[in-house]
């Protein structure tokens, strides 16, 4: 037996069965301009779970999500979706990018944006039928934006824009939902509406993964956490993985003492 095989055997099981995992990353490394942003990360998402990706600013949370979706190309590592390569499984994934990543002055209307979620169904030239519009309206209703269908997107508040993005993801009719900071800069009503929709998705058996930055709401929102600071710092159910020690390790000196105290008191 060669040394190489020995190392492989000692590392991970050679034939790991990932067919049940909606999303699995193995040894994922991403770098921008020669600097590694995400380093050799393993992640296994549990089906039907709601996972929060937690970590300090610049920890590579968004990059991890983008690499999982093929938006940025990883330097090394493997992404599987229900055990298959990403390319075959895009139909089952919905994505909500960061709201700030697009120009909201773009000349388009709310309904148009939601219909973009049905691109894979509509293709290049298929006509938009009443049933497509009806489905888009249904998605807008689920996020409470049905009265805004004809609005220019630039006229919406930040929270409303975020809900439109969620409606577009719903229009994708996916089984795995990946969201990048869905609660960033939104009002309390929107935050409640979004978490309601996400929990409903989870209860339907869908899998939800969200990059999240507000530590105070982690326990209320998620049932699993993935802790990251460039490297994987922990993963598991909130009760066992979202501990003071794990947070201290993830955030280092950047975690405020107040929060740590509150965590240990509670």
């Amino acid at each position: 037996m060669s040394a190489l095989e020995l190392i492989t055997d000692a590392g991970q099981p050679v034939a790991e069965d990932l067919s049940q995992a909606p999303l699995a990353l193995r040894g994922l490394t991403v770098s921008y301009h020669d600097e590694p942003v995400v380093f050799s990360v393993d992640m296994t998402i549990v089906p039907g779970s709601m996972t929060g990706i937690i970590g300090p600013n610049g920890a590579g949370k968004s990059t991890l999500l983008k690499a999982a979706l093929g938006i940025v190309t990883p330097l090394a590592g493997r992404v599987t979706v229900w055990g298959q390569p990403l390319g075959k499984m895009r139909d089952r994934i919905a994505y909500v990018p960061q709201r700030a990543s697009v120009d909201w002055d773009f000349p388009t209307q709310v309904l148009d944006v939601v219909l973009m979620g049905m691109y894979r169904e509509l293709g290049l030239l298929r006509r938009v039928r009443p049933r497509h519009v009806a489905h888009a309206m249904e998605c807008l209703t689920r996020v409470g934006m049905q009265d805004f269908a004809e609005r220019q997107i630039g006229q919406l508040s930040g929270g409303q824009q975020q809900r439109v993005f969620l409606a577009r993801a719903l229009a994708q009719k996916a089984d795995l939902y990946l969201l990048d900071e869905p609660f960033a800069g939104v009002d309390a009503a929107t935050e409640a509406a979004i978490i309601g929709v996400l929990k409903a998705l989870r209860d339907e058996g869908k899998t939800v993964v969200a990059v999240h930055h507000d530590l105070s709401t982690v326990e209320a929102y998620f049932d699993r956490v993935f802790l990251i600071n460039r490297r994987r710092m922990g993963e598991g159910p909130v009760a066992t993985a979202f501990t003071q020690d794990a947070l201290q390790a993830t955030y280092g000196g950047r975690l405020s003492d107040g929060f740590v105290a509150r965590q240990s008191a509670g």
């Binding site: 979706l69 938006i71 691109y119 990946l178």
Partner: peptide, 16 residues
Amino acid sequence: RPLKLSTFDEGFARSL
């Protein structure tokens, strides 16, 4: 459609 989609939201377009 691809022109409009990728001009408005490149990240989302790539995820598709």
